[in-house]
């Protein structure tokens, strides 16, 4: 194999790897709109006493990524306390979302409205998913 060919392959692989790890906020937004918006609302504000807000929520912009991944995948049926309020509606599970989808979704949620947290990679979602 010539030096040039190896270089091209390395560049292509690099580009491929970049595409996989780059968080696609637009794709995350699309998932949000089809699955999450009806309850959590367009402004991420949730519904008082029922559906928890995502905008400005300490858990959402926090560091416990495993918890966020678990809630998205498995849903949530307990009354949840968040920033001094309680929310009682059951959350739908999303077992069909892939790690990359969840990464895009979380990246959208964590950087939207007033949220300015870090984006999340598929590798982080995978690692979080293996933690129980």
């Amino acid at each position: 194999m010539s030096y040039n060919k190896v270089l091209i392959i390395i560049i292509l692989m690099g580009g491929f790897a970049f595409n996989v790890s780059a968080q696609d906020i637009t794709k995350g937004k699309k998932i949000y709109e089809t699955r999450c918006l009806v309850c959590h609302q367009a402004d991420g504000g949730g519904v008082p006493n029922m559906n928890a807000p995502l905008d400005g929520a300490s858990n959402v912009v926090g560091t416990d990524i495993a918890r966020l991944v678990r809630i998205i995948k498995k849903g949530y049926s307990e009354r949840v306390a968040l920033d001094g309020f309680y929310y009682s509606n059951a959350m739908t599970a999303n077992p069909d979302l892939k790690d990359a989808d969840i990464a895009n979704l979380l990246s959208y949620i964590r950087t939207s409205w007033s949220n300015k947290a870090s984006t999340i990679t598929a590798a982080q979602v995978k690692a979080a998913g293996s933690k129980k």
């Binding site: 609302q41 367009a42 949730g46 008082p48």
Partner: peptide
Amino acid sequence: VKNPRNAKAR
């Protein structure tokens, strides 16, 4: 009302 949290009273 677009987003419920913007409603002053319910």
